[in-house]
Computed example of a mutant assay.
Amino acid sequence: MYYLLRTLVTAASFWVALWILPGMDISSDSGTVGTSETIISLLIVSVVFGLVNAIVRPIVSFLSLPITCLTLGLFTIIINAAMLSLTVWITSFLPIHVVIDSFFWTTILAALIISVVSAIVNRLIGAVTE
């Protein structure tokens, strides 16, 4: 149940990032993306993002620990953006996928938006369930 709730929160944070950033979009191989396809694709992308964060992120965080300490934790933003880029690359092989333009700051801003929205919603959900 907890994983399903986290997946829904991540999907909602992806939706907020899609809504705010003009360089981030959902595209389809067939051309048009309807509302149901958008919801399903956001859920699939959030599952892939959760798997990337569970498998790859700990390794990358451990290997970049000296840089993270040197920058007083600011390198974590770059790690978040790298995990988002990896998620976008993995989902590019699916029929419906998230597209981020080539501008690097769009990825950074998307990672920040996803992190902040997820943290706020998780905090609200935690306060309600306690």
Rank of each mutant, 00 (worst) to 15 (best):
Y2F: 15
Y3H: 14
L5A: 14
L5E: 00
T7Q: 06
T10H: 06
A11P: 00
A12V: 15
A12N: 07
A12C: 12
S13V: 07
W15M: 12
A17P: 04
I20V: 14
P22E: 07
G23M: 05
G23P: 01
M24S: 11
M24V: 12
I26Q: 06
S30A: 13
G31I: 03
T32Q: 05
T32V: 08
G34K: 12
T35I: 03
I39S: 11
I40F: 15
S41V: 02
L43P: 08
I44K: 11
I44E: 01
I44L: 09
V52D: 00
N53F: 03
I55D: 09
P58G: 12
S61C: 06
S64G: 07
L65K: 10
L65C: 02
I67P: 06
T68N: 12
L70F: 14
L74C: 14
F75G: 09
T76L: 00
T76P: 00
I77W: 09
I78E: 01
A81K: 05
A82Y: 06
L84Y: 07
T87Y: 05
V88Y: 07
V88F: 06
W89A: 15
I90T: 15
F93S: 12
P95A: 02
I96N: 07
I96F: 06
V98E: 03
V99W: 04
I100F: 01
I100S: 04
I100E: 01
F103D: 06
F104S: 12
T107C: 05
I108D: 02
L112R: 05
I113Y: 13
I114F: 11
S115R: 03
V117P: 07
S118I: 04
A119Y: 09
V121A: 15
N122I: 00
R123W: 13
L124V: 02
I125N: 08
G126E: 07
G126T: 04
A127E: 05
